[in-house]
């Protein structure tokens, strides 16, 4: 039925006034896959996310989602097609409660407030924040705000979710919980690309890892293959 991969990135490049943040990146993501996206600081991971989610227009290359060219689409049309994202620096709606934050996400598919509320309650329960539903989002801890962003993204009923460092700054217990959450997202049939520095969080659950360095893809394989890849070791530890 689905002959085309969920996401196909071909020769993607992005330059800002001559500074090349992404160069010639190609990869595919299949339905329901968990992809880990790693690389040293400044490797271009967030730029790649911004291109996929419509926040940046790529300088070169093309992006296809379910076989349709979406290169240079807007964030709102990317969301409508089924690409959801979280932000590296959390961007919750401060003046709203946790539940209302998620309701805004749910409204993409259903504009009726009462139905959006039901949907949002389900997603809050999914990420384990039901008890904080009526708390103003600004009063949540950073860890809770990150989970809130995940719930908000899931409420848009995506086929692909881009998670930008959802495990950063979490304690070991919270990292395990976050890994379990990503696995449950996978069980719902939603593919995810996860930018992460926390290796013990991402390595056990990722089906495949992409490694970026200086804006280019230097490796693409299973977590076990990546861990032994000389180019990856060199990128992280230096030659």
């Amino acid at each position: 039925m689905n002959t085309a991969p969920l996401l196909a990135v071909d020769g993607l490049g992005k330059a800002f006034d001559g500074l090349v943040a992404n160069r010639d990146i190609s990869f595919v993501v299949h339905h329901g896959e968990i992809i880990g996206l790693i690389g040293p600081n400044g490797a271009g991971k967030t730029t790649l996310f911004n291109c996929l989610a419509g926040f940046h227009t790529p300088t070169t290359g093309r992006i296809a989602f379910e076989g349709h060219d979406i290169t240079g689409s807007t964030p709102e049309s990317a969301a409508a097609l089924g690409i959801a994202r979280t932000f590296q620096i959390v961007r919750v709606f401060q003046s709203m409660t946790a539940l209302e934050n998620v309701m805004v996400g749910a409204m993409l598919r259903n504009k009726r407030v009462s139905e959006a509320r039901e949907r949002a309650e389900d997603e809050l329960a999914f990420v384990g924040l039901s008890h904080r539903a009526d708390t103003p989002a600004s009063d949540l801890t950073v860890s809770e705000q990150k989970r809130l962003e995940v719930a908000r993204a899931l409420a848009t009923e995506p086929k692909l979710i881009l998670l930008d460092e959802v495990m950063a700054g979490l304690n070991p217990t919270e990292v395990r919980e976050a890994s379990a959450l990503v696995h449950r997202i996978h069980q719902r049939g939603i593919a995810s690309i996860i930018v992460e520095h926390v290796m013990e969080g991402i390595m056990p659950i990722a089906h495949r890892m992409l490694v970026l360095d200086y804006g280019a893809k230097i490796a693409d394989g299973t977590p076990a293959e990546i861990a032994e890849n000389p180019a990856v070791i060199a990128a992280y530890l230096g030659e």
Binding site: A53, F55, T74, P75, E76, A79, A80, A84, R85, F87, R91, V92, F93, Q94, S95, M96, V104, G105, M107, L108, E149, R152, A153, T156
Partner: peptide
């Protein structure tokens, strides 16, 4: 009003 970029990411 709160977070225009996040709103766009949710399809607004």
């Amino acid at each position: 009003k709160d977070e225009p970029e996040a709103a766009r990411a949710l399809g607004v």
